[in-house]
């Protein structure tokens, strides 16, 4: 499995996807609406990306980016998929039925970044208390009591 093969395949189904190979792994940039379809494709053969080892979000102030680090336990190729999410109306479809580890990780991102995962089975708060307001890992979050600016 090479980066070229993956790029060729993804371009054939998502012509608007862009790529970045400056880092350690191939980065694929897509829109939030395209993620679910792409996830189903790369989970299955021949790509077999069966191990989602990191799922997180970055707040770029203008928009949010969901970052998915995927690898395959059979051919050991690693890719990074980045989906751009609108900040005001943050939502993306869940992949918790494709990779079950996503269920917990998406719950964590949902409460810390305020991303709504469509069709997620259980989006209750996992780490924070139920009455907690705001999304602490967003850059504009302010907590005058508990946050210490250095």
């Amino acid at each position: 499995m090479t980066n070229e093969e993956i790029k060729e395949f993804i371009t054939s189904i998502l012509p608007s996807a862009t790529y970045d190979e400056t880092g350690e792994w191939l980065n694929i940039n897509i829109e939030a609406a395209q993620w679910r379809r792409l996830a189903q494709w790369i989970r299955n053969a021949p790509f077999d990306m069966d191990y989602l080892f990191c799922l997180t979000c970055i707040d770029w102030k203008a928009h949010l980016t969901m970052v998915y680090h995927l690898t395959s336990t059979s051919h050991r190729h690693t890719i990074v998929v980045k989906a751009k999410v609108d900040r005001g109306d943050a939502q993306i479809e869940t992949v918790s039925d494709i990779w079950r580890t996503a269920e917990f990780h998406e719950r964590e991102v949902a409460e810390l970044f305020g991303v709504n995962f469509i069709n997620h089975p259980d989006l209750r708060k996992l780490i924070l208390t139920d009455d907690f307001e705001g999304y602490p890992l967003r850059k504009d979050f302010e907590d005058p009591v508990n946050m210490i600016r250095l």
Binding site: D50, R100, T101
Partner: peptide, 9 residues
Amino acid sequence: EDAISFGCS
């Protein structure tokens, strides 16, 4: 399969 799907390590 489950260990992989749950991201166990």
